[in-house]
């Protein structure tokens, strides 16, 4: 693998998270943390249901969906019937199981993960329009959130050479 001979390396990633499931939020957080670990600047923009990841009373209650997810498997690999996913408690149980698997790999809970990213210089922003839609105020957001932005503000941050916008 030729990883170190890139003469035109990536400098900044701007990552948009619009969904509030474990997999969507963690994809965002892993990409952002991986960036700052490599010395790449990272800006995170949370919008729509993605706002749950940075909303104080929601951020540690994130679930994965057990219906409408054909990739879902039982432990052991058998298919997971969608009708089971509808039963009360199943979504919570599956989500707890997923989180414990992640903990084993040293993947932290959302609040701690956000702290790791900001410790490395990453910045976390909320979408103004989605905040208005969900009737959220700044005080509802995670304390170290850097601010609330319009789309225009966000794009203004995405300038500079070797910058990529990523939509998870």
């Amino acid at each position: 693998m030729n990883t170190n001979k890139n003469e035109n390396p990536l400098k900044k990633v701007c990552i948009i998270c619009a969904k509030g499931t474990i997999e969507d939020i963690y994809a965002t957080l892993v990409l952002a943390n991986g960036a700052v670990m490599e010395g790449i600047e990272a800006k995170l923009f949370f919008t729509f249901f993605g706002l749950d990841a940075i909303t104080k009373n929601r951020m540690n209650k994130i679930h994965t969906s057990t219906v409408g997810n054909p990739a879902m498997r039982m432990p052991g690999g058998l298919p997971f019937p969608s009708i089971m996913g509808m039963l009360p408690g199943v979504e919570a149980g599956v989500s707890a199981m997923m989180k414990s698997q992640m903990e084993k790999l040293d993947i932290p809970p959302i609040d701690e993960f956000l702290e790791m990213i900001t410790a490395g210089g990453g910045e976390v922003y909320a979408c103004k329009l989605a905040m208005d839609m969900f009737k959220l105020e700044e005080k509802d957001l995670w304390d170290d959130c850097s601010g609330v932005l319009t789309v225009g503000d966000f794009y203004a941050m995405c300038g500079g050479e070797n910058t990529q916008i990523i939509f998870t």
């Binding site: 700052v36 670990m37 040293d106 490395g120 210089g121």
Partner: peptide
């Protein structure tokens, strides 16, 4: 296996200090 998180929990440095000590790529 080493991760940034493990170093942050080592009691030697927190993650912010770890980034300051080795700017641009603390773990590597």
């Amino acid at each position: 296996p080493l991760t940034i998180r493990k170093v942050g929990k080592s009691g030697i440095v927190d993650i912010k200090e770890f980034y300051k000590l080795f700017p641009g790529g603390p773990l590597k």
